[in-house]
Amino acid sequence: MMGDEFAFHFNLVHGRCVGVCIPTEVDDRLLDVLFPEERTLVSALAPARRPSWVAGRIALRQAFRDLGLEPGPILMNRHGAPDLPPDLAGSISHKKTLAVGLAARAENRTCLGVDLEDIPPLPASVEEARAQARPDIRARVLTKDELAQLERVPEQARRRQVLLHFSLKEALYKALHPLVIRHVGFHEASVTPLPDGGVRVTLSLSEDQGTFDAECTWTEIQRHFLTTAKVRRR
C-alpha cells in the first residue's frame, strides 16, 4: 500500500491510532496487502461495503504494527467487531472518506472503542441552526441531565455538541459490548466532554452486569470528531 493513502499516525491516550483514506474501489493492489482469509471475507461483502472494510483493516493492522505487534488476519466476530487475539485490543470506525483503527495491548481484559463522525459546519444564524437540527436526535442520544446541560450551549453550537455526545457513546458502546454482550443504550451512559479532550463518564448499567472503569477522550481531526473509549471490569 502506498504511503500517501495513510492520512495520519499518532498516539492517543488509549492507544495507537492510524487513519486511512478510503479508496473508491478495491483493486488487486489493495487485495494483495490482505491475508487470504481476509480476501475471502471481502469477496462475500457487498461491493459498496468493500472499500471501507478494507481500509479499516489496513488502518488497524498498521496501528498494531506501529506498536511492534502483529495481529494476523483481522476477521469479524459474530457481532461484527474485529476478531483479535486475546492479548490485543482494537477498534475500527469509518465515515465516507476516512477509516481509523485504534490499537493497544489488552491489559487486564481492557477493551477499546473508537468512533469517527463528520463535524457539521457552524450555522451562520439561529434560524439556520434550527433548520440543520433536523432530524432531532437529542432525546434519543442525551440523558435528562445532558439535555439540561445542552440548554446552556449557544444554539448555533448545539448540533455539534449532540454529535460529539453521540460519537463518545458509540465509542463507549464498542468498548463495553465485549464485556456485557448486549446492546447498551444511549441513556445508560452520561458523558461530559471537557475542553482539554478529556471526558467525565458515568455508567448506569444494571447491577447484575458488574462494575466497570470507563474512560473516554475526544479530539478533532480533518473535520471529524475522533472519540475513543477504554473500559475494563473492576
Rank of each mutant, 00 (worst) to 15 (best):
134 R>H: 02
55 A>Q: 04
213 D>N: 14
71 P>H: 10
222 Q>K: 07
217 T>I: 07
82 P>Y: 15
154 P>C: 11
186 F>L: 05
233 R>A: 13
218 W>G: 01
151 E>I: 05
170 E>H: 15
131 A>F: 01
38 E>G: 15
25 E>D: 08
74 I>H: 06
91 S>I: 10
205 L>W: 12
125 S>C: 07
124 A>N: 03
131 A>M: 02
229 A>V: 05
230 K>M: 13
228 T>N: 08
180 V>S: 03
193 P>K: 01
213 D>M: 08
197 G>I: 04
155 E>K: 00
218 W>Y: 09
10 F>S: 11
216 C>H: 08
67 L>I: 09
165 H>R: 14
77 N>T: 01
4 D>F: 15
113 G>M: 06
39 R>D: 04
142 L>H: 11
91 S>G: 08
182 R>A: 14
219 T>Y: 01
215 E>N: 04
229 A>Y: 03
77 N>F: 07
230 K>Q: 15
199 V>Q: 10
135 P>H: 09
113 G>A: 12
126 V>P: 00
100 V>T: 13
43 S>H: 10
87 D>S: 06
157 A>S: 11
150 L>T: 05
108 N>M: 04
228 T>E: 11
105 R>Y: 01
48 A>K: 14
92 I>V: 10
57 R>P: 01
69 L>C: 12
6 F>P: 10
96 K>F: 05
152 R>G: 11
178 P>R: 01
32 D>N: 14
124 A>D: 02
117 E>C: 10
154 P>M: 10
227 T>I: 13
99 A>M: 04
20 V>W: 09
37 E>R: 15
217 T>S: 13
18 V>P: 02
95 K>L: 05
95 K>E: 14
150 L>K: 03
177 H>Y: 06
206 S>H: 09
7 A>C: 05
25 E>M: 10
189 A>R: 04
173 Y>W: 04
105 R>H: 09
106 A>P: 09
183 H>P: 00
152 R>E: 08
94 H>R: 09
80 G>H: 07
37 E>I: 12
84 L>T: 15
185 G>I: 08
206 S>V: 09
132 Q>S: 00
71 P>C: 14
44 A>D: 15
195 P>H: 03
53 W>V: 02
159 R>N: 02
65 R>Q: 15
133 A>S: 13
190 S>F: 10
234 R>N: 15
13 V>L: 13
156 Q>H: 07
73 P>G: 15
44 A>F: 09
111 C>W: 04
180 V>I: 13
220 E>W: 10
186 F>I: 06
230 K>V: 04
226 L>H: 01
225 F>M: 04
122 L>D: 05
86 P>S: 12
89 A>P: 04
85 P>K: 07
38 E>V: 12
225 F>N: 00
201 V>M: 11
135 P>C: 07
121 P>I: 02
164 L>W: 15
61 R>L: 03
10 F>R: 11
24 T>C: 11
